[in-house]
């Protein structure tokens, strides 16, 4: 009987090890997808509250890849309340991502605390954390299932592998993330994020429309649902452009303060 138990235990451990390896393999495929050197677009961010009331924000978004990671620069154009607000994310290898917010009314740049990243980005369902660059090493990956479907007509007929991603950083606002990785193109089309505070499902990211631009997969329509608040945020890129040679000084404090 003891022998039987030992064999069962060993088999389950081996199974778990295989599952982790498979999770890593799927995650690797996602992280190894062709990346753009830079991207830029105008974006429409629509905030929908519990009652269905919509608020629209218009912004410009710029990204670039560097040896340190992904840098981002965003500038709000509308509405007037937030127009001129700028947001800069600079990745540093082996260190916390540096995030700064420029508030035009105060003419001041505010440094975002590294452990205050469960703050909402301009009242949207995006956390500052969500806007950070993520690397393979930032999560521990565990395989869950394959041939999974997403119950949304936008993903009809597509099959996904489901993996669990546990953030390594202690200050992450999520206890775990469940990613739905396409078995066709290895892109993550759905992400379920669980609250670090109580483990309950907090948010779902749906990458509703992903376009192939110059061989790079760019999510051009993203839907974020906050299950606890009952709110949604839609982010639509209206004119995404890839590898246009966005200038390096776009991602600088100088540009933030201009």
């Amino acid at each position: 009987m003891k022998k039987l138990l030992a064999v069962a235990l060993t088999m389950s451990l081996v199974g778990a090890a295989f599952a982790d390896a498979k999770g890593d393999e799927i995650a690797h495929k996602y992280y190894n997808l062709k990346k753009a050197d830079d991207t830029k677009s105008t974006a429409i961010m629509t905030l929908i509250d519990k009652a269905g009331t919509k608020k629209v924000r218009k912004l410009e978004i710029f990204y670039r890849e560097t040896a340190e990671g992904k840098d981002a620069f965003m500038k709000f154009l509308e509405p007037a309340d937030v127009a001129g607000t700028k947001f800069l994310t600079l990745s540093h290898k082996g260190a916390d991502t540096e995030q700064r917010l420029y508030l035009p009314a105060l003419k001041k740049t505010r440094k975002i605390s590294s452990s205050g990243k469960d703050g909402e980005f301009v009242n949207s369902d995006f956390y500052f954390y969500d806007l950070e660059d993520k690397k393979f090493e930032d999560h521990a990956h565990t395989f869950i299932a394959e041939n999974v479907t997403i119950n949304d007509q936008a993903f009809a007929g597509k099959k996904f592998s489901k993996i669990e991603m546990k953030p390594v950083a202690a200050n992450a606002p999520y206890s775990k993330e469940i990613a739905y990785v396409s078995q066709d193109d290895n892109f993550v089309y759905k992400l379920e994020c669980y609250d670090a505070k109580d483990g309950a499902l907090l948010k779902t990211f749906l990458f509703v429309k992903v376009e192939n631009i110059k061989g790079v997969l760019v999510p051009t329509q993203t839907l974020v649902t906050n299950h606890k608040k009952g709110t949604k945020t839609l982010l639509a890129l209206t004119d995404p452009q890839v590898n246009t040679g966005v200038k390096a000084d776009t991602f600088s404090v100088q540009n933030l303060e201009q």
Partner: peptide
């Protein structure tokens, strides 16, 4: 759930946006 279509949400949302919002130069300077 099966009946939902997230793409419709975007179609509705973009319909509310003025036409000029989806055009223009997005470079910093």
């Amino acid at each position: 759930d099966a009946g939902s279509n997230s793409a419709d949400l975007f179609a509705d949302s973009m319909a509310d946006v003025p036409a000029d919002s989806s055009a223009g130069d997005s470079s910093a300077a």
